[in-house]
């Protein structure tokens, strides 16, 4: 019989007053179950924000599917670079030890700002 697993994870967003900076918070496990929710979080912003920040302070765990989602966000931010080459950045902040380790092993600091 098919079982639907409920995940307690949540994606929430906050747009800065000027609409220039988008913060995406992930509560709980950051994995494939959040796929569409995570994409929705940044896709529908119009005009596109100049900077993106993924707040991982309440992220317990992060798997390789989540790394893939971060790559999609990075691509999305690069597509938005239409105003004279000004860099749109994606930063990953407040990772716990486990999450920081996963990011470090993957060397994601080479393509994201990690704080």
């Amino acid at each position: 019989m098919l079982m639907f697993e409920q995940t307690a994870s949540r994606v929430s967003t906050q747009l800065s007053d000027g609409g220039e900076a988008l913060t995406i918070r992930i509560d709980g496990n950051f994995d494939f179950n959040l796929h569409s929710e995570f994409q929705r979080a940044y896709r529908d912003c119009n005009p596109a924000p100049k900077s993106y920040s993924v707040d991982l302070s309440d992220t317990r765990y992060l798997d390789s599917a989540a790394l893939g989602m971060l790559l999609l966000l990075r691509d999305h931010s690069l597509e938005g670079q239409d105003d004279g080459g000004q860099r749109h950045t994606v930063e990953l902040v407040n990772a716990n030890d486990h999450v920081a380790k996963v990011l470090a092993v993957s060397n994601f600091d080479k393509i994201f700002t990690i704080r």
Partner: peptide
Amino acid sequence: LESRHLPLGVVRWLN
């Protein structure tokens, strides 16, 4: 011997 590079396929050119 720890990981020192992004996984394969992420960026176009390896450093």
